[in-house]
Write a protein that binds this DNA or RNA. Sequence first.
DNA 1: GGGCTGTACTG
DNA 2: CAGTAC
DNA 3: GCCC
DNA 4: TTGTG
DNA 5: CACAA
Length: 329
Amino acid sequence: MLYSPCKLRHLQKDTDEKNTSREDDDTSAEDNTREGSFKKRKFLPKELKEKFACARPSGKQVKDFNHHITAELEKLAAAYKSKKDTWRALGYQKAISAIRNYPRPITSREEALSIRGVGGRLADKVAEIVESGKLRKVAEVCEDEEAQTLQRFMGVWGAGPTTAHGWYIQGYRTLEDLREKGNLTRHQQIGLKYYDDINSRIPREEVAEIENYVRSAAHGIKKGLIVMVCGSYRRGRATCGDVDVLVTHPDGQSHETVFQPLLNKLRETGFLTDDLVTQEDNGNQKKYLGVCKLPGEGQKYRRLDVIVVPYCEFAPAAMYFTGSAHFNR
DNA sequence: GGGCTGTACTG
DNA sequence: CAGTAC
DNA sequence: GCCC
DNA sequence: TTGTG
DNA sequence: CACAA
């Protein structure tokens, strides 16, 4: 449950797009308390500065100094996940996140080991990557047909490790197999139909367009509605996996009656093309998961999530749905 | 050795 | 209830 | 996998 | 432009 | 983010 909206500032993402240096993949920890703000504090232990992203000037964005490392580990994480080794995958994921956030290139096993979330086993792997540029384990675990196939199948929205494995033991190997022989749930049919689009990254600019599209529709229904994209967009990423829209209204009431009209309007225009999860019978709908496409030629189908919350939960919801970058500190 | 977030939807 | 996703 |  | 919810 | 200050 989300509790008191407490005080949550330092959150809004700087609007200045003039940031030329928009690398791509990574945490661009937000604006932060800069030195000045801390002056009143008598002590600012330097290890504190190291440990908390929020205490670093990180002004623009934190380069990922260790992309070569996280890239290799990601492969293993994905493979383990597909093999239902959930917890191992989680361990990898946390380590990857921590390494990504690490402010300088890692040069030794020792250094890796000092990072919270990186234990002995992963430190060894990091060291191997640092020295040789790659991980033998990756070839061992990821490059057999089964691993490749499982991961391909998990790219279908609605299909997880269990389903992927089921398809595999039935002898399916390609998406084509699934299309003609597989029995898919409604979700998976949609996931397969838009496989390529859904699995491609969305340019930041396009996310902004989608945001504006939804906002216009919302304002046509009720003025004053707040429409904000969270997720990786709000974390400043150059590309996003999906679009995460948070909707609320300052009057603390209007959010209750907004969902249905908004969805209907977005459907009328053909913007929403497919529904995944949407409980519209219930008057208390909280979220919508579906597929949308901007008008015009050559637009791709994109995964869209819409979350409507009461105003009193706005701030916590914004934090929650904006996610990782803020919590990994 | 045991936890690793908690919740909601679908079938 | 299992599986999946957020 | 990691951490306690 | 900033402060606030 | 939207809106008031």
